[in-house]
Design a protein around this nucleic acid. Structure first.
Lengths: 263, 263
DNA sequence: CGTAGACTTCCACTGGACGGAAGGACGTAG
DNA sequence: CTACGTCCTTCCGTCCAGTGGAAGTCTACG
């Protein structure tokens, strides 16, 4: 390219992607300076690239002058085959579950050692929860995360148990040995639970979804407490999870071999 | 840049965006050659850029060698503030409507002269419909489209009525005068209907959603026929639409002034 | 009114981007 | 088996698009 390049080897494409990826859930809008810093680009370079991205609709500007991801990226992003098959097939079942319980319902897959929420239904009367579609939450503090980890390949599980387990609430379990026990228990019981481990006042139950024999996703539900109706919830979850699994069994269409790789 | 440039003025950024935008609903996966052609780039240039985008996770490759939008773009796209406020607020109401009717429920906004579907709920037992989230369908053949156009500014409506109205089924209305009459009728009645105008065997009813007095979106429902329960559906839709409108009234947070601009 | 912080514009230098060409890999028709 | 077509991949000489420091603008604040 030119002049005094600060970072030889950085291509325009990588800079462009870096700018787009600078946004995340905690930072859905950024100022020019923040964007430049997060993408690790000189201000004037960032300014030029951002101006063009904005002109093209890949970024947009709010009234206040901050930048946000543009409508064009929304269009494009929706076309990514991120578990489209599971999501599409599961959708009606999620609605049924929601209708039956009026609690927040989650569909998640494993992404590295975190639970990636690929769908969510939440009502006016549901317990408030932190997850959104696209959120990634720690596996050890969520019902779906524990289920997915319990059924994960051994190396993944080993790595997950040996990496630091952040305490999120006073009830978050951070001892690897206790989690190890829980994971074994989950395989026996067929479901996982959390009790205020992710957020206070929220408990969850989750079960695996299987395509043939392989666990491909997890289905979870968030409620204020588990005392009364854990059994009823597990039953409802299992009905839905089996239904989804059965529907998944049939179809065969072009799809990625592996899970999307982490950044 | 260099050598013999075929298209002086085309920047790397614009080429990158062109490649990403080459995908659409009808073409969610493309071969290298198709991508190059659709983005209007020389094959080798496209190849180089695509290879890097793939390396960065902005694109991905299927088993068969075709390219698809990458998981990274999914992450980014979800952060675009495409009517996030309306969508978030409306979500629980859509579920209620779905639970009450078990029919496909739609939330749409006007995008140029088409209806952009920003949310959708569809069950196992619903009438099959063509729309997906992110779909853009012609205004004159959809319930939500007619509602939005009836309440659109005069210049938009004029332009819509004077542009070609494609026949989609034998029942699609393509005479501007008849549509004009319908639009006036919609303002009086407070709802719009379609009868197999978009797809055979599917009818729809739709009502406007208002923030204060301004129509910001439309809520629609798709059913096999309207004879029996049009009144009941309109009532249910209005309850939900008013609820959404009321909830929208309150909030104030950073948001784009205008609708996302078309490509 | 000076200082600070964020944004915008300018422009001379140069190395990253360009793309034609050539070389594989695969399928299929003769 | 050879020839041809289609698609993908790699190579490399040319050169202009991209770079980023510097200077200018615009608010906001004390």
């Amino acid at each position: 390219m030119a002049g005094r390049v600060s970072k030889p080897g950085a291509t325009v494409v990588s800079r462009t992607v870096a700018l787009l990826s600078a946004f995340d859930e905690a930072h859905p809008h950024l100022t020019l300076t923040e964007l430049a810093r997060r993408a690790d680009l000189p201000l004037s370079t960032a300014h030029r690239l951002i101006a063009e991205l904005t002109r093209l609709g890949a970024l947009a500007r709010t009234d206040s002058g901050e930048y946000v991801v543009g409508p064009r990226m929304w269009d494009v992003g929706l076309l990514a085959p991120v578990q489209t098959d599971v999501r599409e097939v599961a959708s009606p079942f999620l609605h049924d579950l929601y209708a039956a319980t009026l609690a927040t319902v989650h569909l998640a897959v494993l992404d590295g050692t975190r639970a990636l929420y690929i769908d969510r239904i939440s009502g006016k009367r549901s317990v408030p929860v932190v997850s959104k579609i696209g959120s990634r939450l720690p596996w050890h503090a969520t019902g779906v995360g524990k289920v997915l980890m319990a059924h994960a390949p051994e190396d993944v599980r080993k790595r997950a148990l040996s990496s630091p387990l952040r305490r999120i609430t006073p009830y978050t379990i951070t001892q690897p040995s206790r989690l190890q026990d829980q994971l074994e228990r989950i395989l026996v019981d067929g479901y996982a639970t959390t009790v205020e481990e992710m957020s206070l006042g929220a408990c969850s139950v989750a079960v695996p979804i299987r395509r043939r024999d392989e666990v491909v996703a997890a289905l979870g539900i968030v409620v204020p407490n588990l005392r009364r109706d854990k059994g009823r919830l597990v039953a409802a979850l299992n009905v839905a999870a089996h239904g989804i699994g059965r529907s998944l069994g049939h179809q065969t269409r072009p799809r990625l071999t592996r899970l999307p790789v982490r950044r």
